[in-house]
């Protein structure tokens, strides 16, 4: 064993330099050319940063499109899912309460129209997206509060719907933050 310790130690130092110093520096350097310079892509309104493009935000105000429930209350200092099992009675009660609350805030919407994602927590607690269906069932509420034609809102949703990768891989989605910024701009 002794004869391998010294070469092992030296090789360890070489590998630390290679894999833990040079490699991350190279990636950080080249990534300066990436959107957001490798610091994360931000979105600004009137020159003020209002959020990160990929990080979901909490929207509880009735005048905004809501995102999904979050186990970390959308504070991206951390990240987590609820880790509730599918048969957990307490958890199912929480979902039931969310459904009831959604119905109260969205008069005219029927229970069976609510997509499950609007009443279940995401994996990261920071999900930036919702599906087009989840946006569309919120238009009545927003139209009446903002006094806007509902058709305009539906158009806005269509404009902001990102189709699947290459048109055929994965789900369609809408970035809630971008949608709400566009909503604020709508006159």
């Amino acid at each position: 064993m002794k004869k391998y310790l010294l070469p092992g130690l030296k090789l360890t130092i070489v590998m630390i330099i290679l894999c833990a110093v040079l490699y991350p520096l190279l990636i950080a350097g080249v990534s300066k050319l990436a959107p957001g310079q490798g610091k994360g892509e931000t979105i600004s309104v009137n020159g003020k940063v209002v959020g990160y493009a990929n990080i979901g935000q909490k929207f509880t105000d009735d005048k905004y499109f809501w995102g999904r429930p979050s186990a970390v209350d959308y504070n991206a200092a951390g990240s987590a899912g609820s880790n509730k099992g599918p048969s957990n009675a307490d958890y199912l009660q929480v979902v039931k309460d969310r459904i009831d609350s959604f119905l109260v805030h969205n008069p005219g919407v029927k229970k069976e129209q609510i997509p499950a994602e609007m009443v279940t927590a995401s994996g990261s607690g920071l999900d930036p997206d919702i599906s087009p269906a989840s946006a569309k069932i919120q238009t009545k509420r927003i139209a009446s509060i903002r006094n806007i034609d509902e058709l305009k809102l539906l158009n806005l949703i269509d404009q902001h719907t990102e189709s699947p990768l290459a048109g055929m891989l994965g789900p369609s989605k809408i970035n809630v933050l971008k949608l709400n910024i566009a909503l604020d701009d709508l006159k």
Partner: peptide, 26 residues
């Protein structure tokens, strides 16, 4: 197919179970 307990609560599980999942991945 989704979570049958959630289905019983009456909401729509169009793409499947969503607890602990992300919309962009499905």
């Amino acid at each position: 197919q989704g979570n049958p307990a959630i289905a019983q609560l009456g909401v729509e599980q169009a793409t499947g179970t969503m607890e602990g999942k992300e919309v962009r991945l499905g």
